[in-house]
Nucleic acid binder design. Structure first.
Length: 571
RNA sequence: CGGGGUGUAGCUCAGACUGGUAGAGCGCUGCGUUCGGGACGCAGAGGCCGGAGGUUCAAGUCCUCUCACCCCGACCA
């Protein structure tokens, strides 16, 4: 590519809307432009990078035996009504009508469409397992789009769906995808980690997220420093310690006034108790009514763990007014003892092991002392709902958990048969009996992967692309366009590089040297070959690697070989 | 959804409090000089001051409404 005929579109100044590094650099490097909130144009450079990611994904998916398809973005509402998600999905699902008034959605994901496709064309176990994928645009009407391509509303995703007649086959494909994802993110040059994950709204029995480690990541992950355990904080378990040596309370609960004391810390100080001697109670709204969750006072409830324990589609902290209506007292004085019948109670096992505890009294400005779990209240469910934290013990070994932030670039799920059941996807097995298929689904955010790569690879001058993602492998930069011999030699090298199958560009723009050099650095091209007057008169060019900034000289004749050597060395 | 903020040239921003002919830097066009780290001179182009309504002799500026975008929050009791 001759940059004189290219739309480089670099910006000298920082665009004001960009918060995080990858967003700022994508704008400055001329990769993207915002069209509306969470919706972006991809410019030539951005398009090249996304195509690189896509190609790596495509090759590894094909290698893993998946078949590429292209499914519609606009999907009829009927399919979503059939799966039940028309009602469940909420405002993230963008709904629209065609000219006849028929309902459609912009696909935020493609389970419905793919199940419909497979149920029409697959009828025998002999046709399974099957793994279909696409690399396509999705639309989710995010509450708050931000960080450029990291959390947009319209975005490119690779999504794959596998179909099986039994769990063993599903497990095999799941593992195959797990391995393929590892190869993909390795090939992208990323520092990543696979973690156990909450299955969230998509559902299913198990899942892993692939996290690119970065401080700007939106997720917190916990991992053991000695064994291989790693999990999203939404799911992470921790080792339960022996309970405190507190004797059971002989006396019955005693109500004490705690005027103005609502937060655990304040109540504990007021009552001269350690926070871990209190039971923390929070009330959540769920599709099936209010639920109270209880944990020991020194811990927090992890809403995703509570949601998973209940098996509900969603859950959120109840509105204070709603709580006051139902409990007759405002939040801050709530507890599991003598709570309203209609509110279900879920207790963390550590809370159940407590003795002589203090809790809210469900009475105005009052708490209870000498509370004995089991004797004084009975939970509907005992489940681990406390969130794990850095410093907690590893649940799998004697190690300790550490935490890090990550960008979720991939997510794989064992879906099970929920969608196949709702949409009646059945095939005949070897005995001629009809069985419901079981499914897996596997996603990768293409744009997000590119953004994550920038988060991990940049400096004050701009992007430092891992070579496999770079928009160009090499930039040839003739500094002085008036020097015909120099330009001819640079053009010759450019042609030779292309001839050798190397994706080169030549900066033949009539710009000052400083402009050219800083643009090439900004957009992060891994190798730069400079033709300057002084070195050219000595018959050499200067070859600089973006990542370490080191420059070597090579004879003009030997430049192709020198570049090839650098490329194969992986820099 | 709640709170805050910003909309003026392609980009980054002044101008608004105190109403009176639309500004700067960078970028862009032409000519000349320059040419190894974001050059210099001269001459230019470029704006429905987000939109609508109002107040006024007069509105980028004051008032009302509206739209867009950005940030923070959405409750650990």
């Amino acid at each position: 590519m001759r940059l004189s005929h290219y739309l480089l579109a670099t910006l000298r100044e920082d665009p004001k809307e960009a918060e995080v590094v990858s967003h700022r650099l994508m704008l400055r490097a001329g990769m993207i432009r915002q069209l509306a909130s969470g919706i972006y144009d991809l410019l030539p450079t951005g398009t090249r990078v996304l195509r690189r990611v896509e190609q790596i994904v495509r090759e590894e998916m094909n290698r893993a035996g998946a078949l590429e398809v292209i499914l519609p973005v606009v999907q009829p509402a009927e399919l979503w009504q059939e799966s039940g998600r028309w009602d469940k999905f909420g405002p993230e699902l963008l709904r629209l009508k065609d000219r006849h008034g028929r309902d459609f959605v912009l696909g935020p994901t493609h389970e419905e469409v793919i199940v419909d496709l497979v149920r029409r064309d697959v009828s025998s176990y002999r046709q399974l397992p099957l793994n279909l994928y696409q690399i396509h645009t999705k639309f989710r009407d995010e509450v708050r789009p931000r960080f450029g391509l990291m959390r947009g509303r319209e975005f490119v995703m690779k999504d794959a769906y596998s179909f099986h007649t039994d769990d063993a086959s599903l497990d095999e494909t799941y593992q195959r995808m797990y391995d393929a994802y590892g190869r993909i993110f390795d090939r992208c040059g990323l520092d990543w980690r696979a973690v156990e994950a909450d299955t969230g709204a998509i559902g299913g029995s198990a899942s892993h997220e692939f996290m690119v480690l970065a401080d700007s990541g939106e997720d917190e992950i916990l991992f053991c420093t000695t064994c291989s355990y790693a999990a999203n904080v939404e799911r992470a378990e921790f080792r339960r310690e022996a309970s405190d040596e507190v004797p059971p309370a002989a006396e019955m609960p005693e109500q004490v006034a705690t005027p103005g004391q609502k937060a655990i810390e304040d109540v504990a100080a007021y009552l001269h108790l350690e926070p871990r001697r209190l039971i923390k109670s929070l009330v959540f709204e769920t599709p099936d009514g209010l639920v109270m969750g209880c944990v020991r006072g020194d811990r927090d409830i992890e809403p995703a763990r509570l949601r998973a324990a209940l098996g509900t589609a969603w859950l959120e902290l109840a509105d204070p007014e709603r709580v006051t209506d139902v409990f007759g007292v405002e939040p801050g004085y709530l507890g599991p003892v003598r709570k309203p019948e209609a509110v279900r109670l879920v207790c963390d096992p550590d809370a159940m092991r407590m003795h002589d505890a203090a809790t809210g009294a469900n009475a105005t400005e009052a708490h209870l002392l000498h509370v004995e779990p089991t004797r004084d209240f009975t939970p509907d469910l005992i489940a681990e709902i406390a969130g794990a934290r850095k410093g907690d013990g590893c649940p799998r070994c004697s190690g300790v958990l550490d935490s890090a932030r990550g960008i979720e670039v991939g997510h794989i799920f064992r879906l099970g048969s929920a969608y196949a059941e709702a949409m009646n996807l059945r095939v005949q097995d070897a005995d001629g009996k009809e069985v419901t298929a079981t499914m897996g689904c596997y996603g990768i955010g293409i744009g997000r992967t590119a953004a994550a790569a920038i988060e991990q690879n940049h400096d004050e001058r701009g992007i430092i692309w891992p070579a496999p993602l770079a928009p160009f492998a090499v930039a040839v930069v003739p500094l002085d366009l008036r020097n015909d011999a120099l330009c001819a030699a640079a053009g010759g090298l450019y042609d030779a590089l292309l001839g050798a199958g190397i994706d080169a560009c030549i900066d033949d723009r009539n710009e000052r040297p400083g402009v050219k050099l800083s643009d090439i650095e900004l957009i992060g091209i891994p190798i730069r070959v400079v033709f300057g007057r002084r070195s050219f008169e000595r018959g050499v060019v200067e070859i600089t690697t973006r990542r370490d900034g080191e420059t070597i000289e090579a004879p003009v004749d030997g430049a192709v070989e020198a570049v090839r050597t650098l490329l194969s060395s992986g820099r």
